[in-house]
């Protein structure tokens, strides 16, 4: 039980990453693939947060003496996740707008049907 308690966030994070990867590889609808990308990104963000998580941690503010330095949380992973979320939003928006254009050209979002170009 203790093991699960300590590592539950890592299981969750890698679970989401693999679910996302499975959707990207197995599904043929472009919207579903984009949802898969989004789930995978969420998993990666959760992984970053889980690495920086300390139970009962406090903010690293030095100017207030009542905050103890013992349980200080490193703010770097949170800054990374904020950046990663912004990048993820940009990719998602671009992907959805491309999906609209793709539907306009082909009349379908099924990626198995769209095979104009191949090796």
């Amino acid at each position: 039980m203790d093991f699960l308690h300590n590592y539950i966030y890592y299981f969750g994070a890698f679970g989401l990453i693999f679910i996302g990867l499975y959707i990207i590889l197995a599904k043929s609808n472009l919207i579903k693939v984009i949802i898969g990308l989004s789930i995978m990104e969420t998993g990666v963000n959760l992984l970053l947060i889980a690495i920086g998580y300390i139970k009962g941690g406090t903010a690293p503010i030095f100017s207030r003496p009542e905050i103890k330095a013992v349980n200080m949380v490193d703010p770097v992973p949170q800054a990374l996740v904020l950046t990663a979320i912004v990048i993820g939003v940009a990719v998602l928006a671009l992907a959805l707008s491309l999906a609209i254009r793709l539907y306009g050209h082909y009349g379908t979002l099924n990626l198995r049907m769209i095979r104009e170009q191949k090796w």
Binding site: L21, I24, V91, A95, L98, R101, L102, Y106, L111, Q117
Partner: peptide
């Protein structure tokens, strides 16, 4: 904005963002 451009951009985007993740 033509057919081929959009199709290859979609392919590129999916593979590229998996790589970035």
């Amino acid at each position: 904005g033509n057919k081929q451009g959009i199709e290859s951009a979609v392919k590129y985007l999916i593979q590229g963002s998996v790589g970035s993740s």
